[in-house]
């Protein structure tokens, strides 16, 4: 697949912010993997490492009033959206200072402040939700866009079809962001999908759709801005297929029997952080000292998040059954 030439570098401060965002996700998750082996983080842990450009570039193109629906591999989206690293890490620890009071863990990050609607661990389960959030915006006459993330695996689900049809039929402001990392857990795209050209399939619903180099954060942001602008202007749902790759195993239990080391090594040559950093160096807006400073800044933010999580508290067991139904004061 050849993509159009990468867009020009944005102004230095924006380029730095993209680089910083990707680096934060990378270092945050590396720390998570470490904490997982220390058993500070339990349950399932799905790392986004390698795919950072997708969340970073696409969420940079959203406004505060927009909504985000994500999957169980959503640390990147949450951090890029501005959910504080502290409350995300506390959530991983299961502490009540977490962004879901520790009740969701890694797969279920939620944050009302940033309109971050989770963290859905049922593949394609978030798509109908995104359609509904867009329906609400449409009925309220607001120009909010809902960005909905899902993997290539979701495209084999019935809920994918139902959601695409509904969104297109009702011309709703949804941006479908397909993160095609070539594997649904361990099942390769061609083993699971009769038509592997995913953008082509999306166009069959009558919506604009195109593939994007998901390793190039600038391409991701550029494509998303173009799509969001059209969605917001009433152009109906759009579909972006971000071609990307997960450098780490599916989860911490995955022996990676289904792909070769060579393939992984090949994709690592296009590490999204290195790609952007190199572009910035070539343009003279990043040097070793700058990179070191950025690394130090990010390391401090990650350390701070771990400290926050460590110092956090466990929700009293007496509150176990709270939030099965809304607290009375929440009721309108």
């Amino acid at each position: 697949m050849t993509f159009p030439p990468s867009p020009p570098l944005p102004d230095p401060s924006h380029a730095h912010s993209l680089l910083r965002s990707m680096l934060l996700v990378r270092r945050f998750e590396e720390k998570c993997a470490e904490l997982y082996t220390e058993q500070k983080i339990r349950g399932f842990l799905h790392l986004y490492i390698g795919e950072e450009a997708v969340a970073t570039g696409s969420i940079a193109a959203l406004e505060r009033r927009d909504s985000v629906v994500a999957t169980y591999r959503e640390h990147g989206q949450a951090l890029a959206r501005g959910v504080p690293a502290t409350t995300v890490m506390a959530e991983m620890f299961g502490k009540q200072e977490g962004c879901a009071r520790g009740r969701g863990g890694s797969m279920h990050l939620f944050d009302a402040e940033t309109r971050f609607y989770g963290g859905n661990a049922i593949v394609a389960g978030g798509l109908p939700l995104a359609v509904g959030l867009a329906l609400a915006a449409h009925m309220q006459g607001e120009d909010r866009v809902t960005a909905c993330y899902f993997g290539d695996g979701a495209m084999a689900e019935g809920e994918f079809h139902e959601s695409m049809n509904l969104a297109a039929l009702w011309n709703l402001p949804v941006l479908f962001c397909c993160e095609n990392n070539l594997y649904a857990m361990g099942t390769a795209l061609e083993v699971a999908q009769a038509e592997t050209d995913l953008a082509l399939r999306a166009t069959s619903y009558g919506m604009p759709a195109w593939p994007v180099d998901g390793m190039d954060v600038l391409a991701v942001e550029h494509a998303t801005r173009r799509a969001v602008q059209s969605v917001r202007a009433g152009g109906g749902p759009h579909f972006l297929e971000f071609r990307t790759y997960r450098f780490r195993p599916h989860s911490m239990f995955d022996p990676e029997l289904y792909r070769s080391r060579d393939e992984v090594a090949e994709w690592k040559k296009r590490d999204p952080i290195v790609l952007l950093a190199n572009r910035m160096r070539e343009a003279g807006i990043l040097d070793d000292a700058g990179m070191d400073a950025l690394e130090a800044e990010v390391a401090e933010e990650v350390d701070n998040s771990v400290r926050f999580a460590e110092e956090g508290s466990w929700e009293p067991v007496e509150e176990l059954t709270r939030f099965v139904h809304s607290d009375p004061e929440v009721a309108e």
Partner: peptide
């Protein structure tokens, strides 16, 4: 599934 989920999303969105 699609329209029930859309109902859930619309409820989350203030409807």
């Amino acid at each position: 599934s699609g329209f029930t989920g859309a109902g859930i999303g619309a409820a989350l969105g203030g409807m």
